[in-house]
Computed example of a mutant assay.
Amino acid sequence: MSNNLACNGPPNPTQPSAKIIDVTAGSNVTAVWRHTLTSGANDVMDAGHKGPVMAYMRKVADAPKDTGVGGGWFKIMEQGYNSKTGIWATDTVINNAGKQVITIPDCLEDGQYLLRAEMIALHGARSVNGAQLYMECAQINVTGGKGAQTPTTYSIPGIYKSNDPGLLINIYPMKGEYTIPALV
């Protein structure tokens, strides 16, 4: 997997920004998923994009300059498939006007972080490299954290393998439980 997996990359990278968003530990932030980077507010992601949503963070020294490539990433939320209701996490996001609500853990130490929202579309995942991974990063400054925990961290790229059961799966029809891609 490529370095673009960290915070998106060519051919359609987000625009660099000097802006850092202040976030209080324990509060919610919202990632907004649209069909394209230039879509309007009513153009949410495609309903055919069934799959999980996750969020990761990485503590950094200078958020506007950090590319996100490499170690230090830790997962703060994940939602997958509810086998009782047949609802995917992406369905929930779509039904919420494209909004993915993410709680920033209150146990983190204060400082600058990259916040990485991710959505995986599994409609083509029945073959290796058929899953579509979408991600974007926000530059945030966390305050009010307890600093009580230091999470285990991982590298991006490197958190997934192309044959991970959460990335290599035929969801038509979806049978049984879904395994969200594991951190390796």
Rank of each mutant, 00 (worst) to 15 (best):
1 M>K: 11
2 S>R: 05
4 N>L: 11
6 A>C: 10
7 C>M: 12
12 N>L: 12
13 P>H: 08
15 Q>W: 03
16 P>Y: 04
16 P>C: 00
22 D>C: 09
23 V>P: 05
23 V>R: 04
23 V>M: 05
24 T>S: 15
27 S>D: 09
28 N>P: 06
28 N>I: 08
29 V>T: 12
33 W>Y: 15
35 H>V: 13
36 T>P: 00
36 T>N: 06
36 T>D: 09
39 S>C: 14
42 N>C: 14
44 V>P: 13
45 M>P: 11
47 A>Q: 12
47 A>E: 15
49 H>D: 13
51 G>S: 02
54 M>N: 04
55 A>I: 01
55 A>W: 01
56 Y>M: 04
56 Y>T: 03
57 M>D: 05
57 M>F: 02
57 M>L: 14
57 M>R: 08
58 R>E: 13
60 V>N: 06
63 A>Q: 10
66 D>K: 07
66 D>E: 14
68 G>V: 14
68 G>P: 09
69 V>C: 10
69 V>T: 09
70 G>L: 05
73 W>H: 14
75 K>V: 06
76 I>K: 07
76 I>W: 02
79 Q>F: 01
79 Q>K: 06
83 S>K: 11
85 T>V: 05
86 G>E: 06
88 W>S: 10
89 A>Y: 07
90 T>W: 09
90 T>C: 09
91 D>M: 04
91 D>I: 09
93 V>Y: 01
93 V>F: 02
94 I>F: 10
94 I>V: 15
94 I>M: 06
95 N>P: 08
96 N>Y: 03
96 N>G: 11
97 A>R: 14
100 Q>G: 05
100 Q>T: 04
101 V>K: 04
102 I>A: 01
102 I>K: 04
103 T>P: 13
103 T>S: 14
106 D>M: 06
107 C>W: 15
108 L>G: 06
114 L>G: 11
115 L>M: 13
117 A>P: 09
120 I>T: 11
123 H>S: 08
123 H>Q: 11
125 A>M: 04
126 R>E: 13
126 R>W: 08
127 S>N: 11
129 N>Y: 12
130 G>A: 07
132 Q>E: 12
133 L>R: 08
136 E>V: 13
137 C>S: 08
137 C>G: 07
138 A>T: 02
138 A>Y: 00
141 N>P: 02
142 V>Q: 06
143 T>M: 03
144 G>C: 00
144 G>T: 02
145 G>C: 01
145 G>V: 01
146 K>D: 05
147 G>S: 02
148 A>R: 00
149 Q>S: 14
152 T>K: 15
154 Y>G: 07
157 P>T: 08
157 P>W: 09
157 P>R: 05
158 G>C: 06
158 G>R: 11
158 G>K: 06
158 G>E: 14
159 I>W: 13
161 K>S: 15
161 K>Y: 15
162 S>K: 15
162 S>D: 13
164 D>Q: 03
164 D>P: 02
166 G>L: 00
167 L>T: 09
169 I>T: 02
170 N>E: 04
170 N>T: 00
171 I>D: 01
172 Y>H: 10
172 Y>V: 06
177 E>R: 12
178 Y>Q: 08
180 I>F: 03
181 P>G: 07
